[in-house]
Design a protein around this nucleic acid. Structure first.
Length: 134
DNA sequence: TTCCTGACTCCAG
DNA sequence: CCTGGAGCCAGGA
């Protein structure tokens, strides 16, 4: 993304209100993400977008990835290796301890990876909106 | 405080 | 087929 021009400001930022409507079911967006990810069965994978959609914020798929970034400090551990982008590509491999760690973990679970892309991704894809119902 | 970036995805050219 | 812009929102400089 060789884009450097961001001249557009956001006037709506002035309307920032921290009035949250009694957040009782969602203590935090991150925790919700973690919980969903932890429900992913071994040997199955899902995508950031699927999780975002399940949480009702399809357009916020990036936040799911952001949550994954903070997941490595979360306890119990979150199997972030089971979350990839919509093409089944391991876009977050560099965020693990080593660049090959993600593939190793997946391989141990019986998931084969070729050129950073999960083989038969569509077949082992696990959709929380269908399989899970919190 | 403001500005920028990003483990994403969709849509238009 | 590939490139790029827009929308989302949290956190760091």
């Amino acid at each position: 993304m060789p884009i450097k021009k961001n001249i557009k400001t956001n006037p709506k930022a002035a309307a920032k209100q921290k009035d949250l409507p009694s957040s009782k079911e969602s203590p935090s967006f991150f925790e919700d993400v973690f919980e969903v990810v932890r429900q992913i069965p071994k040997g199955r994978v899902t995508s950031y977008g699927a999780i975002a959609q399940f949480l009702g914020t399809r357009l916020s798929a990036r936040m799911v990835g952001w949550a994954m970034n903070a997941s490595h400090t979360s306890i119990p551990a979150v199997p972030a290796q089971r979350v990839v982008n919509r093409n089944g590509m391991l876009t977050g491999k560099h965020h693990f301890s080593t660049s090959t760690k993600m593939e190793e973990l997946l391989k141990k679970e019986g998931i084969l990876v070729k050129d950073d892309v999960i083989i038969d991704f569509k077949e082992i894809f696990w959709d929380p909106t269908e399989e899970l119902s919190l």
